[in-house]
Design a protein around this nucleic acid. Structure first.
Lengths: 323, 323
DNA sequence: CTGAAAGCGCTTACAG
DNA sequence: CTGAAAGCGCTTACAG
């Protein structure tokens, strides 16, 4: 019994011939472990939860797709749970209020604050995703958002743009990393910071992006030639406002988005954007979770980990090529 | 023991006072059943698989989102599995080759044939989703695709369009329901069928949609004024080709898509499309699966079920309204 | 290195 | 209507 278990679980201390015999038997009868039983015996559920605002949003769908794939390899199931951008729902998820016991939790938080994490009662292993960092309050994985935003602005400057607006929901927060990257980018190019081009919106939606740009264009100062949108979705809205105002992309105004959702390459003009390395994001998040669950490094402090990103240049900044 | 179990599972034959006492105790100690143990005892895994080509595609993400939500209410987990549009992967999924035992299977098939179902060895309860029907070879849920395509064409005709192309991957199949709806639509309007406007593509992708329309425009007969695309994704590609050719949507050519993915309302112009009732789709699929799993109607023949759809009219057919 | 035994938390005949 | 007992398929000290 124990020997077979040792072989199945890849533990040491099994003689080579015995191992071979066990494996042959496994092969012959087509044995596959019953995960319910294993989890019952181990006191685990075998399930991790992935909490996202809305699975329907392509960025989260793509992320979920990566996590599902990679979790499968570890014998974990992924319970996908949606918060609908609601802070209360995010806090509830933090406390592990699921219809099923959960071994770990990956949360893509939108509204969570540091205090939410400090007040957290649940001890379920947790990894946070997303733009905001929480210092040592939780394990966290993301791209370097400051550098990414800087890169986006740098690219706009390289296209000869100098009046570059930024649109996004988190813009009023002084320490928002993407805004800091935007400011660094302007500074590095020797461009002045123009507060009237910093456009905060209620939410990172297409509707809000459209409204922000429309209002800017309708106001007196119409002289912008570049837009950095904090998500592709916002960028699509911005492009709609430009179009309705009779401005061409990129001839009049160049646009850069963020996320590289599938539609970024399907729209006309296709969208230049920041593409996070989603595979790495999923991989690192799962590793951090695994380490916590197995207690591999129980003393390890919560850490911020960074994964690569890439600027994908498309038509919204460089125009149409001959086809 | 048995009594508590009866109460928890909502079985009959428990006296009212006893029931109240049990429930009070449950409440007090915060008892929640351990699903691993329950499933082990019941000989189930508590997991159903949802097989889709690619979760990243917004249509499937939206569908998955519905199914995940509604499955949760039944105490089921959803294992999401991707086939990458590969027929072999779809067949493998049919045989239940998962890393975990599965109680049931919902498959959104792209390339499956009737023979694949007839040859199926696995007996895991199965519900198929998608355009194609399989007669009595399997349980199946979908919208009435013939009627939906007919509605799309009818709408184009109502906008004064008469030279209406259809673009899609399944178009060469004579019995493709959307093509039949397209033909009915033309016939009902007294319009001639013009084979040169029926554009088959390799896959329902943006790239293919774009290529098909570009080639049509480059050929001699340039006189089209309407396009019915079998998916929104294909429609986006078609709009790109029109744009690059200097044609305006909808002034020169009106476009109708299919699926109502989130981006249909974010693009410029926003896309008129067929919106399947996704909630109903998920609901019916789960009910059919549940009936099979519980053997509620073991004698029931596999059945085709239909759920509602709706035409959502947007700018790609009626133009921009004053904002 | 390996076997026998207990136990994980449920469900389900089986008595009563 | 309700309790005692066995069993679901694993894992894990515990002997040897």
């Amino acid at each position: 019994m124990k020997t077979v278990s040792n072989v199945i679980n890849g533990y040491a201390h099994v003689s080579e011939p015995t191992k071979t015999r066990v494996l042959a038997a496994v092969e012959m009868i087509g044995y596959r472990p019953n995960l319910s039983a294993r989890n019952l015996a181990r006191g685990r559920s075998g399930v991790i939860a992935l909490v996202v605002p809305r699975l329907e949003m392509p960025y989260f769908a793509a992320l979920a797709s990566q996590i599902v794939d990679q979790a499968e390899g570890r014998g974990w199931f992924v319970l996908i749970h949606e918060t609908g951008w609601d802070r209360a729902a995010e806090r509830a998820a933090l406390e592990g209020q699921f219809p099923q016991r959960i071994d770990g939790l990956i949360v893509s938080a939108q509204h969570l604050r540091r205090s939410d994490l400090e007040e957290r009662a649940a001890t379920t292993p947790l990894v946070l995703l997303g733009e905001r960092t929480f210092g040592d309050a939780a394990h966290h994985v993301a791209i370097d958002n400051v550098a990414a935003a800087h890169t986006a602005v740098e690219h706009l400057v390289a296209q000869g743009r100098s009046k570059i607006a930024m649109v996004g929901a988190s813009i009023e927060t002084t320490d928002d990393p993407r805004m800091r990257g935007y400011l660094h980018g302007l500074e590095a190019a020797g461009l002045p910071v123009r507060p009237e081009l910093m456009l905060p919106v209620e939410a990172n939606s297409g509707e809000e992006g459209e409204r922000a740009i429309r209002e800017l264009l309708q106001s007196s100062s119409e002289d912008l030639d570049g837009i950095f949108a904090v998500t592709d979705w916002v960028a699509l809205g911005a492009m709609r406002a430009l179009h309705l105002h009779g401005l061409r992309v990129p001839e009049d105004v160049a646009v850069v988005g963020f996320d590289d959702i599938p539609y970024a390459r399907a729209v006309t003009p296709s969208l230049t954007t920041i593409a996070p390395d989603r595979f790495a994001l999923a991989q690192v998040a799962l590793r951090m979770l695994e380490a916590q669950i197995n207690g591999t490094d129980p003393l390890a402090e919560p850490a911020d980990r960074t994964v690569p990103f890439e600027l994908v240049v498309r038509e919204s900044t460089t125009g149409y090529r001959a086809s």
